[in-house]
Design a protein around this nucleic acid. Structure first.
Length: 296
DNA sequence: CCGATTACCTGCACGC
DNA sequence: TGCGTGCAGGTAATCG
């Protein structure tokens, strides 16, 4: 599920456990995920203290004192969970340890907080589309992050900027919004949601909302606002979740998703007075959900 | 250069 | 119960 809001939720969940903590032991239980783990992956992190957790688009970044920056991507199915040692239990026994663990636990970080509390941070990823890489310097200069576009958080993405990004693009609007080089962090769910909020068809040629003129100007403004609000709402809700996605803090996803369009094929359009219904189409091999009545 | 398609990998829901 | 099919949030390589 991880689009930007979910990754941000993971970052916030891991932050209190990791920041300031010492990496006592780091273990990769297989040689690769999507890519091979970096050379000396465990050795270069073990013993380091985590100074900060960051995020760029859908990438997590972990900074350590005097070491490489860990760049981590969750892919389609990656998740973290935290197992916290209980002072009343035997050392090394982690009370979450029963549940659904074990299978596909690929990376294990044993960490010690400054107060001496032990925790275990576990990366689980059945499909192994996720990956972990090192950046020797600022991660923004790493090839994987260097080409990323504007964050849809904050106020940077406004109508004029969006219009300039889409100008001249012949591709369908949906494809343009999924292009991480333009806007970084949108995925299949939130693109459908943003287009529904903006009342714009995913099939529209992207460049047509960028041309000058009062109507197009209003549309780029509306779309920028829709993107920012949908991302902000999802982050505020703690990231959405499908199936039983596990939050970074180990609890089950607490946000019962309320999408207006995504995965609502056949349902009435939720826009007041619209009367249409949501349909599913395929664009570039991926599902798009939209209402042809109010999204033009 | 651009955009569309395919590959990567496992799990799950579904129909038979 | 079991098996085949299609589908799933991601990016990157390949093809036209």
């Amino acid at each position: 599920m991880p689009e930007l809001p979910e990754v941000e939720t993971v970052r916030r969940g891991l932050q209190p456990v990791l920041e300031g903590a010492r990496l006592v032991k780091v273990e990769a239980r297989r040689p690769d995920l999507r890519f091979p783990f970096p050379e000396r992956f465990s050795e270069r992190l073990t013993g380091k203290t985590v100074t900060a957790l960051g995020r760029r688009a859908k990438y997590l970044t972990m900074y350590v004192d005097d070491g490489p920056v860990l760049i981590c991507h969750l892919g389609m199915s990656g998740s973290f969970r935290v197992e916290t040692g209980d002072a009343n239990e035997m050392p090394g026994v982690f009370h979450h340890e029963r549940s659904k663990s074990a299978a596909h636990d690929h990376v294990v970080f044993d960490v010690a907080s400054p107060e001496g509390r032990s925790s275990r941070v576990i990366f689980n990823d059945p499909r192994r589309f996720g990956f972990m890489l090192f950046s020797e310097g600022a991660p923004d200069t790493h090839p994987m992050l260097a080409g990323l576009g504007v964050e849809p958080t904050g106020n940077a993405l406004d109508g004029p900027l969006l219009a300039s990004l889409l100008e001249g693009r012949r591709s369908p609007l949906k494809a343009a919004l999924l292009d991480q080089r333009l806007i970084a962090g949108l995925g299949n769910i939130y693109v459908s949601e943003a287009l529904w909020r903006a009342g714009l068809s995913p099939l529209r040629e992207a460049g047509t909302i960028a041309v000058s003129g009062k109507k197009a100007k209003g549309q780029s403004e509306r779309l920028a606002e829709a993107i920012r609000s949908v991302i902000a709402d999802a982050i505020a809700a703690g990231g959405s979740s499908l199936r039983d996605y596990v939050q970074a803090d180990g609890s089950l996803g607490y946000f019962q998703h309320s999408f207006a369009a995504y995965d609502r094929e056949g349902e009435p359009c939720a826009k007041a007075g619209c009367g249409g219904h949501i349909e599913r189409i395929v664009q570039s091999g991926r599902s798009t959900f939209y209402c042809r009545t109010c999204q033009r």
